[in-house]
């Protein structure tokens, strides 16, 4: 009884700032920008931008996988480190998050561009300016750099809580190191993997600043298109339609990841 009352402020918050805006988005998506009449034109126009949707999802997926590959050993190492070192390493992971992500992306621009720090250095060694910026690899680099902490932290939480006796038990029963990892550690950390992938994938798929700064002129992602509809073109209706479709696609992707890990403790995630 008491708990339910405690939740009321949040419930009201949810209704006011999540459900109502969502309804507004749906309303805008199905109305015309000039007349306000009901229309499917916004949804129909979406077909032209299908390749951009796929490209955004693809780049976000690649980033999420790279984050997992890079982040898992880091999280494992931190989780197994002595307590004092652990706190210090965690602080190092969190520290960059205290700086605005716009600033961090701008820093990458000045590192990577043709007259940037890296190319200037290479120039001194006699190596011509390399095309480091304005391509898809630079976008993925920006995404991985910005979202890596969101992968490491949930993985760390899961790995840190894991009972070491389970590993000892597996070893007693004759597992070698590889088997301990694939049969015990990896399945046990599945919830962390799922939430890590979700937390990297969702912001990455809708990002607009990173692609604008680090990508080429042919690298507009769906976030850029949505931003332009609200900021420059004044067509919030089409922007809303794009956001709605993107949201549904994200839900499908999350649903898929949750399904895959369904065996392992049904990890559900915000």
């Amino acid at each position: 009884m008491r708990n339910r009352f405690l939740a009321t402020p949040y419930l009201i918050w949810m209704i006011l700032f999540v459900l109502v805006p969502l309804a507004v988005v749906v309303y805008f998506a199905f109305t015309d920008v000039n007349s306000g009449a009901l229309t499917l034109h916004n949804i129909a126009r979406m077909g032209n931008y299908l390749s951009i949707f796929i490209k955004s999802i693809w780049l976000a997926l690649v980033s999420a996988v790279i984050c997992l590959v890079v982040g898992y050993p880091v999280a494992y190492f931190i989780a197994k480190a002595p307590a004092g070192l652990q706190r210090f390493l965690l602080m190092l992971i969190i520290l960059p998050m205290c700086i605005s992500f716009l600033l961090r992306t701008m820093a990458w621009v000045s590192l990577l561009e043709d007259t940037g720090v890296i190319n200037n250095f290479l120039g001194m060694l006699g190596i011509g300016p390399l095309p480091l910026i304005r391509n898809n690899a630079a976008i993925v680099l920006g995404m991985v750099y910005n979202y890596l902490p969101y992968m490491i932290l949930p993985l760390y939480t899961v790995l840190e809580k894991m009972d070491p006796r389970l590993i000892e038990a597996a070893q007693d029963l004759g597992c070698d190191d590889m088997q301990v990892f694939t049969k015990v550690t990896l399945p046990m950390s599945a919830p962390g993997i799922v939430s890590g992938i979700t937390m990297v994938f969702v912001p990455a798929v809708s990002t607009f600043y990173i692609s604008k700064k680090l990508g080429g002129t042919d690298a507009a992602l769906i976030g850029d298109v949505i931003e332009s509809q609200f900021k420059a073109a004044y067509n919030p209706n089409f922007g809303a339609a794009l956001s709605l479709v993107l949201m549904i696609l994200i839900f499908i992707c999350i649903g898929l990841t949750n399904r895959v890990s369904g065996d392992e403790k049904g990890a559900m995630l915000v």
Binding site: Y49, S51, W58, L61, A219, A220, S228, N235
Partner: peptide, 28 residues
Amino acid sequence: QLMDELWLDVKTDGGSISTGTIIAIVVI
């Protein structure tokens, strides 16, 4: 309005992805 729509087309042109990428996505 047409100019706005065409401008978006200009800026999103070339966003199409290679067949290799599509195959990779389907395989995954």
